[in-house]
Design a protein around this nucleic acid. Sequence first.
DNA 1: TATTATAGTTACATTTTAGTAACCATTGTT
DNA 2: AACAATGGTTACTAAAATGTAACTATAATA
Lengths: 125, 125
Amino acid sequence: MKKIEINSERFDNMVENIKKYGGCPVSATLKIIGGKWKPLILYFISVDVNRFGQLQRMMPDCSKRMMTTQLRELEKDGLINRKVFAEVPPKVIYTLTITGENLRPLFGELRKWGIENILEPKKKS
Amino acid sequence: MKKIEINSERFDNMVENIKKYGGCPVSATLKIIGGKWKPLILYFISVDVNRFGQLQRMMPDCSKRMMTTQLRELEKDGLINRKVFAEVPPKVIYTLTITGENLRPLFGELRKWGIENILEPKKKS
DNA sequence: TATTATAGTTACATTTTAGTAACCATTGTT
DNA sequence: AACAATGGTTACTAAAATGTAACTATAATA
C-alpha cells in the first residue's frame, strides 16, 4: 500500500481551515471580512484614515470596544498591520497587509452587486 | 429657490436602504449573502439541489429551523424563488432569481480570494 | 392500524455578539 | 492641581442568533 506524502504543517493548516470554515472558500472569506464594521474599517485604512481615534470619529456608531475587537480580528486574520510608536500620548497606525490589499477587486464586485441589485435596482417596469 | 424632483417611491427606498445598510453597498451585500448557511444554500440551489429535504441532506449541520429562516430571508431579499406544488406529501422547489444569478461573478471573486489568501496561502519563505 | 414521506412551525434554552460606562497610564498644558 | 490627549481594557448588561426537541398536516403504503 502506497503512502501519500504531505507537508505536515500544511496538513495541520488544512485541517484547521476545514474545522473553521467547512473547507468552503466563500464561507471562509465571508467570515473574515463580514464583521459588522470590517468593510468600513478596511476602506478607511485603505485611504489612510489609519489611527484609532480617526477611525472612531469616522464611525461614531462603532464603540471603542467594537473598534478594538474588529481591529484585533483583522490583525489576527492578517488583513492589517498594527504599528505602535513609543510615544506619549500613544500613537498607533494601521495599514493594510498584502492580503488586505488583495481584497480590492473583491470589494469592487461587492460594491457593484450592492449598487446594482440593492441600492439602485432597476425597476421591473 | 429651486426644488429637486425625485420619484417618491424611489426616495423612500433610498431612506430605507440607508437605515438598513448605512448606505454602503459593500455592507449591504455582505448583510444579504453573509448568513451562516446562505452561500452554501445558494450554491446548492444553483446546481439544482433545489428541494428542502435535499438541501438538508447536503448540510446536515444546518437544522430545519435554520434552513427555514435562511431560505425565507433569501426569498425576502429577492435572491431565490419558492414554488409550492399542491401535492401530498408537500413539494417545494427553490430556484435562483435573476438577482441571485447576478451573484455568480461575485462568488467567483470570494472563492478566489479565499483560496489564495486563506485556504492555500503562499508561504512567505 | 401504524409508519413513511415532505416541508415545515413552535416554544424554550443556550450561545454569541454587541452596547454602556467606568477605568488605566503618561506627558504636557493651563 | 486638574485636565486634555491617545489608545486602549474591563466588568456588566442587553439583545440577537442559533440549537433542540416536540409537534403539525395529508395521502399512500405495509
